[in-house]
């Protein structure tokens, strides 16, 4: 058996060229070369998908290429699924869905395939699923577990709503994905019954023989929401973006086009959304991590550190009367200085 990494390289080259036939050949070569179905999924397909994210952050891929590659890679799961040995469902009935508003469907898609390989009776509902639809679906089909995937921490409030609604319907919720933090700290904050850092751990958790927890009801760690800071920031996103934009416009590089300005405004929306999410789970690190990451991405895209610093500063001015928000913003600025 060859190292799965060889096939991952082969797949990556084919996906970058947009060549589906070559990509499928890489996957089938791996299957025929004796790599296990699980390793093809995780060490070839998923490993390549991870690379999409890092290449994008380093500005070596555009968002559009990211979509094109992801769409092809998604089909590679179909190719693998069609060419692996069947396994009759003999374990739990699981519904896999993404958090409402989440775009990244691949992790949920991978988990679905993993569960299916391990004999779970699994149903995949995809990305962009409004929470009310998810709830009416579980009322209709009565799964034993909902697995909820989230990549963007900005959707944590939506995740909380979905988790609570599933639990009210009597179904425990397993969560996973980057949105819930590398150590899963946000998972329990928003009331999840179970958390797994990745698909492999999710499988070992669910096949360990430990009975599923009964659904927890509502989370307890969100008392800080009574200060209304989250609500205010979430509600006034457009207003905040407008004020900050006006305050830092003078720092735009010469030759900044209308399109550049629009993109910058879009970045501002992200910034305010991450601040909102940090306020929701009361975790300064969530916001600081996003700002540091933005700083890296921006320097890859040749946007000045000064602009980012002034932007965070202008947002601080707007939120003078919100002590928790101000604390997060000051912390992020200190972090920027250290970079």
């Amino acid at each position: 058996m060859r190292d799965p990494g060889v096939y991952a390289e082969q797949l990556w080259a084919a996906l970058k060229a947009g060549d589906e036939t070559r990509a499928a050949t890489a996957v089938l070569d791996a299957v025929e070369g004796g790599v296990s179905s699980e390793a093809v999924l995780l060490d070839v397909i998923a490993a390549t998908q991870t690379r999409v994210g890092t290449e994008w952050a380093a500005n070596r891929l555009t968002v559009v290429q990211e979509h094109a590659i992801t769409a092809l890679n998604d089909r590679m799961i179909d190719v693998l699924s069609a060419h692996r040995p069947r396994c009759a469902p003999h374990r739990l009935r699981v519904v896999v869905a993404c958090v409402d508003g989440e775009w990244h469907a691949m992790p949920a898609r991978m988990l679905t395939e993993m569960l299916s390989q391990h004999g779970f009776d699994v149903e995949y509902l995809g990305a962009q699923l409004p929470t009310p639809r998810l709830i009416s679906h579980i009322h209709r089909t009565g799964p034993e577990l909902v697995a909820l995937s989230g990549s963007l921490s900005t959707r944590l409030p939506a995740a909380h709503a979905a988790i609570t609604a599933c639990q009210t319907a009597g179904v425990p919720v397993l969560v996973g994905g980057a949105a819930f933090g590398a150590d899963g700290r946000y998972a329990y904050r928003v009331g999840a019954d179970l958390w797994a850092p990745d698909a492999r751990s999710a499988i070992s958790l669910l096949t360990s023989g430990t009975p599923l927890p009964s659904p927890a009801g509502s989370s307890t760690g969100l008392g800080h929401l009574s200060d209304q800071e989250y609500t205010m920031v979430a509600r006034s996103t457009a207003g905040l973006v407008g004020s900050v934009f006006a305050a830092v416009e003078r720092l735009f590089p010469a030759g900044y086009s209308a399109l550049d300005r629009e993109r910058f405004a879009d970045e501002l929306v992200h910034l305010v959304e991450f601040l909102g999410a940090a306020l929701y789970v009361d975790d300064a690190g969530l916001f600081t991590d996003f700002v540091s990451w933005t700083a890296e991405v921006m320097s890859a895209r040749e946007i000045s550190a000064e602009l980012l610093d002034e932007t965070v500063g202008a947002l601080t001015d707007q939120l003078r009367d919100f002590p928790r928000a101000r604390g997060f913003l000051d912390g992020a600025r200190r972090q920027l200085v250290g970079l």
């Binding site: 947009g18 968002v63 559009v64 979509h67 094109a68 992801t70 769409a71 092809l72 962009q128």
Partner: peptide
């Protein structure tokens, strides 16, 4: 920006931008 992409990626990208 979606030139040369597969159909699935085109609708996903447009849907994401509009949403």
């Amino acid at each position: 920006a979606c030139a040369g992409m597969p159909a699935e990626a085109v609708v996903e990208h447009v849907h994401m931008v509009v949403s």
